[in-house]
Simulated scan of single mutants.
Amino acid sequence: MITQIKEQQVLTNLFPKKIQMYSRKEVAELFHTSEDTISALVCTGCLEAIKIGKSYSFSYYSILDFENEYRGFDLSSTEKMKNAFEIKHKEAVACRDYN
């Protein structure tokens, strides 16, 4: 019983009380871009989304990860998004192989 209570307390501390999810429109507004650009970022793998029903939702953490991973990259076209994703993917594989 005590173990179950401790496990519950750990889980409660790990997750925020309220998980904030953003719509494609809200993310587009945050980045001052179009909803189509956000869709392209999702399709190229640069921005992670969760599909719920017919629409995509974006967690606060996926938005932060995107900002950190792609800072300094030119993502002004789908081709440039694909190139940036390939560069980041190669970096991740190289780090994994090194370790």
Rank of each mutant, 00 (worst) to 15 (best):
L30E: 05
S62F: 06
I63M: 02
Y22T: 01
N68R: 05
D36L: 12
E26L: 03
K18M: 12
E29F: 01
N13E: 15
F58W: 06
E7H: 04
L41V: 02
V42C: 10
K6M: 13
T37D: 08
C95M: 04
N83A: 15
I50Y: 13
M1A: 11
M21C: 15
E48P: 04
A92H: 05
I52F: 15
L75I: 03
E91H: 02
E86S: 10
M1N: 11
S77T: 14
Y61H: 14
H32N: 13
F85R: 13
Y22K: 09
R71K: 12
R96Q: 07
A40I: 13
V27L: 03
L64T: 12
I2T: 12
I38W: 11
N83I: 13
D97Q: 06
K54H: 08
S76H: 07
K6H: 10
H32W: 05
K80W: 01
S77V: 03
Y60E: 15
S55K: 15
Y70C: 03
F73C: 03
F58Q: 08
N68C: 01
G72C: 00
E69L: 06
E26K: 03
N13R: 11
N68G: 03
E29L: 09
Y56P: 02
A84V: 02
K17L: 15
T12G: 09
S57P: 02
H89Q: 10
K6C: 08
F58A: 06
E26I: 00
A84G: 04
D74E: 09
K51L: 10
E67P: 02
F58H: 03
S59Y: 14
L47P: 12
K25L: 13
V10N: 15
V42Q: 02
L47C: 03
N13K: 13
V27Y: 04
K6R: 11
Q9I: 05
K18W: 12
L64Y: 04
T44N: 04
R96D: 00
L30Q: 13
Y70N: 06
N83F: 14
V27G: 02
R24P: 00
N13Y: 11
L41T: 00
S76P: 02
L30T: 06
H89T: 05
C46S: 09
I38A: 05
A92I: 00
